[in-house]
Nucleic acid binder design. Structure first.
Lengths: 221, 221
DNA sequence: CAGGTTTTTTACCAATTGGTAAAGCGACGA
DNA sequence: TCGTCGCTTTACCAATTGGTAAAAAACCTG
C-alpha cells in the first residue's frame, strides 16, 4: 500500500510484542543514528541498545535503511508541529515569539531528534528530499505568506519571512546540534538554558517589534 | 616533535612532490569528509578524488584518522580568523557587523569547511575536544569580555555576549550546513545570497543598535 | 650511468558489517 | 497431544574497508 515496500512486517504492527519491539528498536536507533550518523551507526549497536540480537532487529525492519527512513518519517510531524501551530489566532508578535520559544524548548528537550535531522540535512538529505518537498515546503510557503502579511500590515517590523524562519531554526537548533561546542564554552550547566532563552527572546523581539513600539526588552543582566 | 605521532612522513613535507600530494589528499579529504562525515568517508573515495591509489594515500598519511585530524587542525585557524580579527579598533557596532558579514561570507565561500566542523561537533567533537579547549575557548572568553565591555559602556545595546556569538555562528553557518534544506525551500539561486545578507544584517543590527539610536534599518525589500 | 632514496603499484589480509538461512522455541487452538 | 504460527537464536556469508608487505618504478645525485 504505502511506498514502504516492507516485505518482512507490514507497516501497522499487530501484536502487543510487535509494537513494543518496534518502539524499542526505533528508540535505540534514534540514539545511535543521532550520535554517529547513518553510515557511522551499525546494526549491532542498534541491536545492543535495543537489547536484542541483530537478526531479530532485521525481523522487524527490512534493513538499516528502513529503520532510518521510518524514524525520519515518524518524527517529521512531531518536529514540524510548532511551525504548523503558528497561525493568526493570537497577535502576530506573540504568535511568533511562542513559536520561537517552543522551538527552543524542543532543542533542549529533544536533542536527539534535532541531531538526527541535522545529520541528514548536512549530508544533502539523501533520504529526506522527497519529504522536504512534499511535507515541509508547502507548510513553509504557507507560513511565509502569513508572516509577510503581518509584516505588510505593520503588525510586526519589516522582515524577510523565509530568512526569518531560517534564523529561528538556526538559533534554536544550534543548542542541540552544537551542544558539544556550547558545553565546552559555557561550562555552567544550570543557568545556561535560562540565559539562552532570555537571549533568544531578546534577539527576535528586537527584530520583530513593530517600529515605534517602546517595548524594547531591557538588559538581560 | 609534535603530538602528531606520524611514523610515515614527518609533519613538514620536504620535497615539492610531497607538498603537492599532501595538499591534493587534504583537498580530496575535505570534499569527502564534509559530504559523508568521518565514518561515512572511505579511503578509496579520498584516493579516487585525489587521483591516486589508496596505499599511496597511506604513504603520505598514517591513517584515515590522521588525515581527518590534520584537516581539522589546518582549517581551525582559518575558520577562527574572523573572530580573532574582532577588536576595539573600529567602533563596536561596525566591528560586530563586520564580523557577522565576514562569517556569512565564509559560509557561502567555504561550505565544505563549515560542514566539516559541523559534522565533527554534531557527533560530540570526538577528535576536536582538545582544540576546543585549547584554541577556541580562550579566544571565545576574550571576545566575550570585549563585547561585555561595549555593552556595559552603552556602545551597543545590552546583550549576552556568549549567546550573541552563538547566534552569529548559528545563523551564518546555517546557510552552509543546511544548504540542502535552504535549496529545497528557496529555489531561486540568484537573489538568495543577497537576501540572506540583508536579513542577517537587519537581524543583528536591530539587536545591537544602542537604545535611542534611530538607525533602524528599513524594509529589506 | 651507478647507486641509493623517494614514490607508486600490486597483491594481499583481517576485521567489520549488512544481511540471510534455517533451526529452535513458545503459545495457542483443535 | 499435535500442528501451526509468531518470535528468537545460531551459524553463516559476501562485500567492504582500513591497513600492510614488498616489489617495481621514478627520481635524484655524484
Amino acid at each position: 500500500m504505502a511506498e514502504d515496500g516492507s516485505r518482512a512486517l507490514a507497516d501497522r504492527p499487530r501484536s502487543r510484542i510487535q509494537t513494543r519491539n518496534r518502539r524499542r528498536i526505533l528508540d535505540a536507533a534514534l540514539d545511535v543514528f543521532s550520535q554517529h550518523g547513518f553510515r557511522g551507526a551499525t546494526l549491532d549497536q542498534i541491536a545492543a541498545q535495543a537489547g536484542m540480537s541483530k537478526p531479530n532487529v532485521l525481523y522487524y525492519f527490512d534493513s538499516k535503511d528502513a529503520i532510518h527512513v521510518t524514524l525520519l518519517n515518524a518524527l517529521m510531524a512531531e518536529w514540524l508541529a510548532p511551525l504548523d501551530a503558528l497561525d493568526a489566532s493570537a497577535d502576530p508578535l506573540s504568535a511568533l515569539m511562542d513559536y520561537v520559544h517552543r522551538k527552543l524548548e524542543m532543542s533542549f528537550e529533544m536533542p536527539r531528534e534535532s541531531r538526527l535531522f541535522a545529520g541528514e540535512i548536512l549530508q544533502g538529505a539523501p533520504r529526506m528530499a522527497p519529504h522536504l518537498d512534499s511535507a515541509l515546503a508547502p507548510l513553509f510557503v504557507e507560513k511565509c505568506a502569513l508572516i509577510r502579511g503581518w509584516s505588510a500590515a505593520g503588525l510586526i517590523a519589516p522582515v524577510d519571512p523565509e530568512h526569518l524562519i531560517y534564523s529561528i531554526w538556526a538559533v534554536t537548533q544550534h543548542y542541540a546540534d552544537f551542544e558539544a561546542q556550547v558545553a565546552a564554552l559555557t561550562p555552567e550547566p544550570d543557568g545556561a538554558r535560562a540565559r539562552a532563552t532570555a537571549h533568544v527572546d531578546t534577539l527576535f523581539r528586537r527584530l520583530l517589534a513593530p517600529a515605534g513600539d517602546a517595548a524594547q526588552t531591557g538588559a538581560p543582566d
